[in-house]
Design a binder for these strands. Structure first.
Length: 441
RNA sequence: CGGGGCGUAGCUCAGCCUGGUAGAGUGCUUGCUUUGGGAGCAAGAUGCCGGAGGUUCGAAUCCUCUCGCCCCGACCA
């Protein structure tokens, strides 16, 4: 993509509406534009990141055996009356009346709808286990939206729902999601730590929030350093191996990790002092098992092999996809701008032609651009007639992992400069060698 | 939903107290000079001063109502 033709409305100054760093940087980098309080348009650069995050979530959900479908944003109130939540949900639910005076709503979540879909099609123990998910926009009419896309009213969420015959099976479904989440966040370059979460009125011990550590996080969290040092991607996972999956969950849940609300001073004090971590955290995922809370009122039952019918055992598993865009920035930025992990970066390489008017620079840049594109490397080519300082500032702001700088100084010796955004490390390389960094297998 | 604040150029803001018909920086346009970390000079364009009423000879400015946005608290993927 040539920057001269790309819709990238960057801002030099911080918009006054944005307070926290991810919100400021997303606006300054031209990723989003606020439509109204807590509701955002995603501009090309931001949309690319959103899609990349969504794709990682999708791949890991699929790998764990979950199946993607798509439910609507608008739901009928009828199902919510069946579950009893229509009245319970309160003003957070955006209620709509259609032309026939029917009560509708913009879905804040999908337990009712998915249960309705499942119950109509699944009657037997042979029909489980199933895990169905979708990645869809939700709306919760927060009293006070804030922090940009981190706490918007409209947000993109992956929500999965598991269906099992027994509690034991449901536990395995839960564990699979637990492990899939660890892998998902790790692939985005995040250290997400599962923390025991409040299960509310449902009860039980099967609920975890996945928290990433970031200085500007919303809540105070405490954990054992061991929890940070585990690497979820170190080994392949066989999701059908119940004992294996359980052992991964056990290892993670055996180390202390808690949010402020669940913090246990005594347990924390028991951790060796050098391993105690007290930090700020952002919730990026939440999983929980809720048994027959929805299947019972909605009549989703399965026939067991002996003919007896029982309510299906369910769990639900959310990931805040749009929130993750902000959360990753909170966890990965510096005073010059965003620092994208390669896995979610909108482009892998930013190619900077330092002097557009110079024939040699433009020719070399053009060749590099073509070569990278031919190799399938996503590259943003800054071919604007701007001063070097402005170009560097733009690249640092939008945070592409690699900057390939073509300037007259280096080119005279046949060299271009490769800069790693994260470390700032610069290296002068012959053009072919620089290209090989990206095109080599 | 309680408490506070702010709406003036694309963005950041001044002007308001003490009414006289709109400014700066940045960005944008054009030209020249520049060119390795947001360049210099010159010439330009840009506003229903959030909206509606009212007071006044006259309102960005004073009064009333209203809409929007932000911050703190309670609540949340």
């Amino acid at each position: 993509m040539r920057l001269s033709t790309y819709f990238l409305p960057t801002l030099r100054e911080n918009p006054s509406e944005a307070q926290i760093v991810s919100h400021r940087l997303m606006l300054r980098a031209g990723m989003v534009r606020q439509a109204s309080a807590g509701i955002y348009s995603w501009l090309p650069l931001g949309f690319r990141v959103l899609k990349r995050i969504e794709q990682i979530v999708r791949e890991e959900q699929d790998a764990s055996g979950a199946q993607e479908l798509l439910m609507p944003t608008i739901q009928s109130a009828d199902l919510w009356r069946e579950s009893g939540r229509y009245d319970d949900y309160g003003k957070e639910m955006l209620r709509i009346v259609d032309r026939h005076e029917r009560d509708m709503l913009y879905g804040p979540t999908n337990e009712e709808l998915i249960t309705d879909i499942f119950r109509g099609a699944s009657k037997s123990w042979r029909d489980v286990p199933r895990n169905l998910y979708h990645i869809q926009w939700k709306f919760r009419d927060e009293v006070r939206p804030r922090f940009g896309v981190m706490r918007g009213r409209e947000f993109l969420m992956k929500d999965a729902y598991s269906f099992d015959l027994t509690k034991e099976d449901a536990r395995h479904s839960y564990n699979k999601m637990f492990v899939a989440y660890l892998r998902t966040f790790a692939r985005m370059g995040l250290k997400a730590i599962p923390m025991q979460a409040d299960t509310g009125p449902i009860g039980g011990d099967l609920s975890h929030e996945f928290i990433i550590l970031a200085d500007t996080g919303e809540s105070q969290v405490y954990c054992d350093r061991d929890a940070i040092e585990f690497d979820p991607l170190a080994e392949a996972v066989d999701f059908d191996d119940r004992a294996g999956v359980q052992s991964i969950v056990d290892r993670w849940t055996s180390v202390y990790a808690a949010t402020d609300e669940k913090h246990d001073e005594a347990a924390y004090a028991a951790i060796p002092e050098g391993r105690r971590v007290s930090a700020r955290g952002i919730e990026v995922g939440h999983i929980f098992y809720f048994g027959s809370k929805y299947s019972k009122p909605l009549g989703a039952v399965l026939a067991k092999p002996d003919g007896e019918t029982v309510p299906v055992e369910m769990g639900s598993y959310g990931i805040g996809v749009s929130r993750l865009v902000g959360a990753i920035i909170e966890a990965s930025h510096d005073d010059r701008g965003i620092v994208w992990p390669e896995s979610v970066a909108p482009f892998r390489v930013g190619l900077v032609n330092l002097r557009v008017g110079d024939a040699a620079c433009s020719e070399a840049s053009g060749k590099i651009y073509s070569a990278l594109r031919a190799a399938g490397i996503e590259v943003l080519y800054d071919d604007r007639d701007e001063s070097p300082g402005a170009k560097f500032a733009t690249m640092d702001l939008i945070g592409l992992p690699w900057q390939l700088v073509v300037g007259p100084r280096g080119l005279a010796q046949g060299l271009v400069e490769l800069k790693e955004r994260r470390t700032g490390a610069k290296e002068d390389l012959p053009i072919d060698a620089a290209l090989a960094r990206f095109t080599a297998a």
